[in-house]
Simulated scan of single mutants.
Amino acid sequence: MEALFPELTPFRRDTIRLHPRPGRPSPRDSSVGGPLLWPAEEIWPVCRQEHYLRTFSGERYYDEGEVYLVPIVQIHRKDVPALPFPEGCDLLQVLWCPFTHIGLYCPEPRVFWRDSRTVEHVAEAPSPDENAPEQHIPRPCVIHPETVQEYPSWDLPEEIDDALLDRFENLEQEQGWSYHYHLSEVPGIKLGGYPGWTQDPLWPECQWCERQMEHLLTVSSREYDGESWRTWLPVEDRETDSGEEGGRAHWGEDAHSPTGMMLGDAGGVYIFECRSCPERPMDYRFDCS
């Protein structure tokens, strides 16, 4: 990439693809949607905000009860050592309220960092609220972390994008590779790098130090789409049809939608943190097609 487009070099970032696949992780495993190494003596977090829910009949109403948060991602440092953990912590846990919330109209996440060595007795996760949207609760998945380099698509500065446009188009015409679909941002659930935006970027600023926050985690509906599979679908997941590799055969299967989630119209929730502040405050954004 940088041999063809040296202007992209300053924008290169490492991202960690989690490659979730349905499985039976334990609390001692890194996972997406799996059981958490949550201390039995610690109260399970709940959401007390108003919840927005659409019923099958099309009616809309607010639900104001306490809702237990559901596990989304758990990362042990031994599995993803490149992730910048806070000092004294070796475990990242992300949960969210599965209901839609007013404002961003998506589940509301929370981030917890802890020292796994202090957890002796593990709590069993409460059952999700019976009215919670199933498409906001991931199936338990084991992960297969892979660090790759990526370049910005939506986050590429406009003046750089304009300067490279003709060369991007020439590459696509000559070799069939679209910069924005095949060669820039990694799709799927990932740590670090660039958010997997589907619309214009909207980076949050820390309310304490007013610096732009850093991307911690993208939780997306799908691992790839009808275009991006050509470069981002793992070799192990590829099938052949009449001698040609195909990605569409995987739609609805483990490689394409391993968690079973659907966030809006194939969208994603993007979680950010401020590493300049000791408390590591977090924020989040949501977008979809």
Rank of each mutant, 00 (worst) to 15 (best):
K78T: 11
K78Q: 11
K78D: 13
D79H: 14
D79C: 07
D79I: 07
D79T: 14
V80K: 00
V80C: 04
P81F: 10
P81A: 04
P81E: 10
A82G: 13
A82L: 15
L83Q: 10
P84V: 07
F85V: 04
F85C: 04
F85Y: 03
F85W: 05
E87G: 04
G88T: 12
G88H: 11
C89Q: 07
C89L: 00
C89F: 09
D90V: 09
L91T: 14
L92N: 05
Q93Y: 00
Q93M: 08
V94Q: 02
V94K: 07
V94L: 11
W96Q: 03
W96Y: 08
C97G: 06
C97D: 13
P98M: 08
P98L: 04
P98Q: 07
P98F: 05
P98W: 08
P98A: 06
F99D: 05
T100S: 09
H101F: 02
H101K: 01
H101N: 01
I102R: 06
G103Q: 10
G103I: 12
L104I: 14
C106N: 09
C106E: 11
C106M: 14
P107H: 11
P107Q: 11
P107K: 05
P107D: 11
E108I: 10
E108A: 10
E108P: 02
E108Y: 12
P109G: 06
P109L: 00
V111Y: 07
V111W: 14
V111A: 07
V111T: 14
W113T: 01
R114S: 15
R114C: 06
D115A: 10
D115M: 10
D115K: 01
S116F: 10
S116R: 12
R117P: 01
T118H: 01
T118R: 10
T118N: 05
V119L: 10
V119N: 00
V119M: 09
V119D: 03
H121E: 06
H121N: 06
H121L: 00
V122H: 10
V122Y: 08
A123M: 04
E124G: 13
A125C: 15
A125I: 03
P126S: 01
P126F: 00
S127N: 01
P128Y: 02
P128T: 04
P128M: 02
P128A: 06
D129H: 15
E130A: 12
N131Y: 14
N131C: 04
A132I: 05
A132C: 02
E134M: 09
E134T: 15
Q135I: 14
Q135C: 13
H136W: 09
I137H: 07
I137G: 06
I137E: 09
R139D: 12
P140R: 01
P140D: 09
P140F: 09
C141P: 09
C141Q: 02
C141E: 12
C141L: 08
C141T: 12
C141M: 07
V142W: 13
H144K: 15
H144S: 13
H144M: 10
H144F: 12
